[in-house]
């Protein structure tokens, strides 16, 4: 029930609004729920609001742990 897409924060217009790069296309969105968001952060966006930062490290860890688990697993 929650279509949300990732976007990278390109700039902050002011404390509550910023522009994100959605993948070659930019859009202005609301940052009211993420007062500490920094330029360069990855954000998850729903109905024009950024709801959380996305941890690149966590994403990397999830994938690499899985890849490791399945390459050493019985084939």
């Amino acid at each position: 029930m929650c279509l949300a897409i990732p976007g990278r924060l390109l700039n902050k217009v002011d404390d509550s609004r910023g522009t994100v790069d959605l993948g070659g296309i930019t859009k202005e969105i609301s940052l009211v729920f993420l007062p500490d968001a920094k330029v360069g952060d990855w954000l998850i966006i729903h109905t024009g609001f950024a709801l959380q930062t996305i941890s690149e490290q966590d994403a990397l860890d999830t994938i690499s742990l899985l890849q490791e688990a399945y390459s050493t697993a019985k084939d």
């Binding site: 279509l3 897409i5 959605l22 993948g23 070659g24 296309i25």
Partner: peptide, 12 residues
């Protein structure tokens, strides 16, 4: 196109 793909993800 990437731009079309992004809008489609955005709007379902």
């Amino acid at each position: 196109k990437q731009s079309t793909s992004v809008v489609c993800e955005l709007l379902g």
